Simulated assay, not measured.
Amino acid sequence: MPSDASTFTVRYTFDGPSLLADVTGHGHDLSPVSRNGGAYATVARNGGKALVFPTPCHDEPCPRIALRAPTTAELNPGKRPIRYGASVRLAADQTTKGENVMQKGYSIRGSQYKLQIDGLAGRPSCVLVDDRRTVIHAAISGVGVADDRWHTLECRRSGSRLSILVDDVVRGRATLPADLSVSNHIPFSIGGKGSFADNDQFQGILDDVWVEIG
């Protein structure tokens, strides 16, 4: 995480009276989109709060929820360096094929940056997709985080290098085209792509989500 709070492009601590507010003051506040009764709850953490997302569901209709910030070019890094991350807690029985911690854009169109946790082992990964070439570049952690403990996750892109850090240790890397650019008109989302089917619902506890661009 950036050491200087002033460098955050957006940050959500989920504390205080406005749980979904962007605490940087840049105005990228979140709003929920939900279906089938999807909702978040809160639990106490470190003197503040963290968000609890719906538990795994195997029989439709399943509850779904995502938190979205309005579309803005300020959250498009283009070719610039970008760092983004979150604190997560996920139990072994809360893993699925894919769970979105955060994302902006889609891999099949318009470019993307994304942090996700995949598979039964709960291995986090960072994904970048260019706005001209729909090739998925992923830095996948060699260790899982589905142990019902808190972990900090961070993605770092600098030039042609993409890295994923788990608890401040680099656990995976990928090589990118140096001119890869992420720029799209899709809202920034946390906890899922949206409220539709196959939304890659996050199903654990989430706290301190942030992005730093430049």
Rank of each mutant, 00 (worst) to 15 (best):
Asp208Lys: 08
Leu153Gly: 08
Asp198Asn: 15
Val182His: 04
Asp148Arg: 14
Asp208Met: 05
Lys193Met: 04
Pro177Val: 11
Leu115Tyr: 11
Cys62Thr: 03
Gly159His: 10
Val88Cys: 05
Arg173Ala: 12
Arg171Tyr: 00
Pro32Glu: 14
Gly48Glu: 06
Gln112Arg: 11
Ala39Gln: 15
Pro177Met: 13
Ala174Met: 06
Ser163Cys: 07
Asp198Lys: 12
Leu165Asp: 02
Val129Ile: 09
Leu20Ser: 03
Leu162Phe: 05
Ser163Leu: 14
Gln103Gly: 01
Glu60Gly: 00
Thr55Ala: 14
Thr55Gln: 11
Ser31Leu: 12
Gly16Lys: 10
Ile190Gly: 07
Val182Tyr: 06
Arg156Asn: 11
Leu19Lys: 13
Phe196Ser: 09
Asn184Thr: 07
Thr96Asp: 13
Ile108Lys: 12
Arg161Phe: 01
Val129Gln: 02
Arg89Leu: 11
Pro63His: 02
Pro81Glu: 08
Tyr113Cys: 05
Thr96His: 12
Ile136Val: 14
Ile136Asp: 00
Asp198Gln: 11
Gly98Trp: 02
Ala41Phe: 02
Ser87Gly: 01
Glu99His: 06
Arg83Phe: 07
Arg132Asn: 05
Thr13Pro: 00
Ala86Cys: 07
Ile213Thr: 10
Arg171His: 08
Lys104Glu: 11
Asp93Leu: 08
Lys49Tyr: 05
Pro187Trp: 05
Gly194Asp: 13
Ala73Ile: 06
Ile186Trp: 11
Thr71Gly: 09
Arg132Gly: 00
Pro81Cys: 09
Gln94Trp: 10
Arg109His: 06
Gln203Tyr: 03
Val169His: 07
Ser111Phe: 03
Trp210Asn: 02
Ser34Asn: 10
Thr72Ser: 15
Ala92Gly: 01
Arg173Gly: 13
Gly27Asp: 10
Leu90Glu: 05
Asp207Ile: 04
Arg83Glu: 13
Ala44Asp: 08
Thr175Ala: 13
Arg133Gln: 10
Thr13Tyr: 07
Ala121Glu: 14
Ser34Ala: 15
Ser111Arg: 05
Pro32Thr: 14
Gly142Asn: 04
Leu19Thr: 13
Phe8Pro: 01
Cys57Gly: 10
Leu75Met: 15
Pro17Phe: 04
Arg161Gly: 00
Ser111Thr: 04
Asp93Trp: 06
Gln94Arg: 15
Gln201Trp: 02
